[in-house]
């Protein structure tokens, strides 16, 4: 029995590690046993897709696209702040303007924000570093 438990203790982390490697894609940390992209997609479908669309293409004149824009791929802090604070400023991407406001979504938990931002930074043709919960937390506490 003792031997069996030891085996489990040995195999379980290994299995989790392999699973993370398989599904983590752009996420490098093997510790990310949970699938951040999958979790991020769930948050995206619920809170973002109705405006930014399932393909991240946005809506011409109304809601900005999320694919290959400096807002998504650039400075992480600015991107995190857009979620925490919302935004109602005139926005121009490739000569097109977008008029709908971005709602403040600070109801989302730090981890949910990290997940969804990691998802959009690695979907719709994007590739950029993951966002972590501590990064979100730091900006949220600065805000208060």
């Amino acid at each position: 029995m003792k031997k069996f438990l030891l085996t489990i203790l040995f195999i379980l982390p290994l299995a989790l590690f392999v699973q993370a490697q398989k599904s983590g894609k752009a996420i490098s940390s093997p510790a990310a046993a949970r699938d951040q992209l999958l979790e991020g997609k769930k948050v995206y479908s619920k809170f973002c897709a109705s405006c930014h669309q399932l393909d991240g293409g946005g809506v011409p004149n109304l809601n900005p696209p999320l694919s290959k824009t400096i807002y998504v791929l650039g400075d992480k802090s600015r991107l995190i702040r857009i979620i925490l604070n919302g935004s109602n400023e005139s926005l121009e991407i490739d000569g097109e303007t977008y008029s709908n406001p971005m709602p403040q979504l600070d109801i989302l938990k730090d981890q949910e924000i990290a997940d969804v931002l990691t998802y959009i930074r690695n979907s719709f043709g994007n590739k950029a570093a993951a966002v972590t919960a501590p990064e979100v937390k730091a900006l949220r506490s600065k805000k208060k």
């Binding site: 809170f47 709908n100 406001p101 709602p103 403040q104 109801i107």
Partner: peptide, 9 residues
Amino acid sequence: CQQKDRTPG
């Protein structure tokens, strides 16, 4: 005409 436009709840 929400207090916070387009914000859930």
